[in-house]
């Protein structure tokens, strides 16, 4: 049984349809990359999958025992109040909140998870700094560490590498790869970095005028895939 399945899904805002008739399913351990142009509806799809936004029509079916507190999420934009007093440690730890249920305080184990993930993202030296006084890339790492804390089965990432430097970017891809291959965590990632998408993903969902869903191999042969990737290659030259 797939972990997540979309049937005839139509997305949009206030009955204005942006994407219609999406059909795809994701199994445990898949690595799905969602690609498409700006404004094609990738973020909207992710929010709909997360139940933050309701679909216009169609169904999202979760299976395989997936519960909402086993999902990690990195938003594309986090609008944090300008004067919000919050330390890096507090924010990363809040990623463990879903594990708590009604329990009021974090367990030592959860604090360890937070510390581990801060180390992973190379921000353990910032742990008592104030979030809003960090650089954009550092903030991105904090939110990634928080997302990793919440992840137990499924991780959704909306442009995780935007704002990261090249070294951090490749480290990021390695971490995601490791989570996917070793911990068998399902990954859904939105990315404009098509070469990385093709390199790491097992499946690709292309949103746009033409919708494509399938394995990476089929994507490269397909119509949108061929165009999108060849554009990319031309740009790289």
């Amino acid at each position: 049984m797939p972990q997540l399945e979309c049937r005839n899904l139509s997305l949009g805002y206030d009955s204005k349809v942006i994407v219609s008739n999406l059909n795809f399913s994701i199994n445990k351990g898949d690595y799905l990359c969602i690609v498409g142009e700006n404004g094609s509806g990738k973020t909207t799809l992710m929010k709909t999958l997360l139940n933050l936004h309701s679909p216009i029509s169609g169904n999202i079916i979760t299976g395989d025992g997936l519960k909402s507190n086993e999902i990690g999420y990195l938003p594309q934009q986090t609008i944090v109040q300008k004067d919000f007093p919050a330390s890096v440690k507090e924010i990363v730890l809040s990623g463990c909140q879903g594990r708590c249920g009604l329990r009021p305080f974090y367990k030592r184990e959860e604090k360890n998870i937070a510390r581990e993930n801060m180390k992973r993202m190379g921000i353990d030296n910032l742990s008592s700094r104030c979030y809003r006084e960090l650089s954009g890339g550092q903030q991105q790492r904090v939110l990634l560490a928080r997302a990793l804390c919440a992840t137990r089965k499924l991780l959704l990432l909306d442009e995780p590498v935007s704002g990261l430097d090249p070294k951090a970017t490749s480290e990021m891809y390695d971490i995601i790869e490791e989570l996917n291959s070793q911990d068998k965590i399902t990954i859904i990632m939105i990315s404009h970095d098509i070469s990385a998408a093709v390199k790491y993903a097992s499946h690709i969902l292309h949103i746009g005028d033409e919708i494509f869903f399938g394995t990476k191999k089929d994507y490269l042969k397909s119509n949108p895939g061929g165009q999108f990737t060849s554009n990319e290659r031309r740009n790289e030259k």
Binding site: K47, L50, N51, L52, K67, S68, N69, E70, I71, G72, Y73, P75, T78, V80, F84, A86, E90, I91, L93, S94, G95, Q97, G98, C100, P104, F105, Y106, R146, A147, A150, L156
Partner: peptide
Amino acid sequence: LFFYNKIFAVTFDENFAKASGT
């Protein structure tokens, strides 16, 4: 006191809190 951590999570980023099961 009992809900302090939850109040923080919801205040800081309601969408994330919702998405991750709070």
